[in-house]
Nucleic acid binder design. Structure first.
Lengths: 207, 207
DNA sequence: CAAGTCATGTAACGCGTTACATGATTGG
DNA sequence: CCAATCATGTAACGCGTTACATGACTTG
């Protein structure tokens, strides 16, 4: 049910087509919430029949169908209600930590590679979130810019602050994961060093 | 498909009944991987028919059926293969950060309560993971104790090290979330302070 | 003898993923 | 004119959740 609110969130800034939303879900917003086209199109249809959004057909010249969605007043009410409602917290279920607990079962090289992937993945996430945060802070993010244009100036600070706050949480999380992966690689080094005694050269050194 | 490996992981330590596994999935292991009974029982049956585990019927006195599962050699092969295989990383999808980005839509009191919940939830998680980590380090964790009994002494260090490593990742993550929630509450204070000027007393102070 | 917990499941449902399908428009 | 991108979906499947169902054994 969260996709629905992610879509409403986007539409609180400005009207968009499903295609444009799908693009955003693969790019900027997609770093927080990803969804494939095949989920977005039907969900928008459902939201339309629930009266949360309304569509305007854009027949640009030819007979190309293109539907631009706009949030309705009911949609705004629904979105505010969602914003007010606390979410349930459920127990985390993290495969990566589960695997990490059993890395002694893996080949040391395979173990190292997996931690390296963890490091790489979260480093990239970190970079993207840093970029997003900056785009929010300097107001260059297009969705944010549109949003600010449609809202009174005295609210701008709050709007920007919460967006940045959200990204900063993700940034810190990514940093935590990166640090953890590094510690894991160090641990592997230490354990293999023990096993092989003063065995050989360390082939790679991380910055 | 991860439940399968979580179950195999448990069974690498010692044979267990589905009921005992279900209990562990609600308690100790459950902090890393939770699963309800209704998923565990059928999955074990499927694993049995796939030859990864085998069951021994324990008819203790009466005609009470009770099946104790043990991992097979095929199961061990499968588990090692899993341990060697890198996982796919998919984009995170975090409702809480999504909501945080739109907290300006929420009533300030509701926003505060949600951040407070975030803080509480992750504080509790933190406590439980710290306890788990300690139970691993001092080898008092029952599953770990059983595992160590069934493995040669020279491997004990590795076994313990990876379990502790996994929990430490979760510990750091929980700490990150706690810190983020605190920052969020501070942000709310700051913004409401701005809106209400030097408004009123701060009713609660966090340690 | 009643309440709790031991012990094992089935059924329905929903969100999300992957794969598949189609056709129009635009730019090189 | 061909490839990329615009634009919109359908279908099948799987994992996980919630609710429901049952009965035996144990402890106070």
């Amino acid at each position: 049910m969260s996709l629905r609110y992610a879509l409403l969130a986007l539409l609180t800034a400005r009207p968009l087509t499903a295609y444009d939303m799908a693009k955003q879900f693969s790019a900027s917003v997609g770093h927080v919430w990803h969804a494939p086209d095949s989920q977005i199109y039907p969900e928008l249809r459902r939201m339309e029949s629930d009266g949360l959004v309304e569509a305007r057909e854009l027949t640009s010249g030819g007979r190309r169908t293109k539907r631009e969605y706009r949030i309705t007043d009911d949609g705004l009410v629904e979105f505010r209600a969602w914003a007010d409602t606390p979410l349930d917290y459920q127990r985390e279920r993290d495969v990566h930590h589960l695997k990490a607990a059993y890395l002694e079962w893996a080949d040391p090289a395979a173990a190292r590679e997996q931690l390296q992937r963890h490091l790489t993945f979260h480093s990239e996430q970190l970079q993207q979130w840093l970029a997003q945060r900056d785009g929010v802070l300097d107001r260059s993010n297009p969705t944010l810019a549109a949003r600010l244009e449609n809202s009174p100036a005295e609210e701008h600070e709050r709007v920007v602050a919460f967006k940045a706050f959200a990204y900063e949480g993700l940034i810190e999380r990514a940093r935590t994961e990166v640090a953890w992966a590094r510690r894991g690689i160090d641990l592997l080094d230490r354990l293999s060093g023990t096993a092989a005694e003063a065995g050989g050269d360390v082939e790679e050194r991380r910055a």
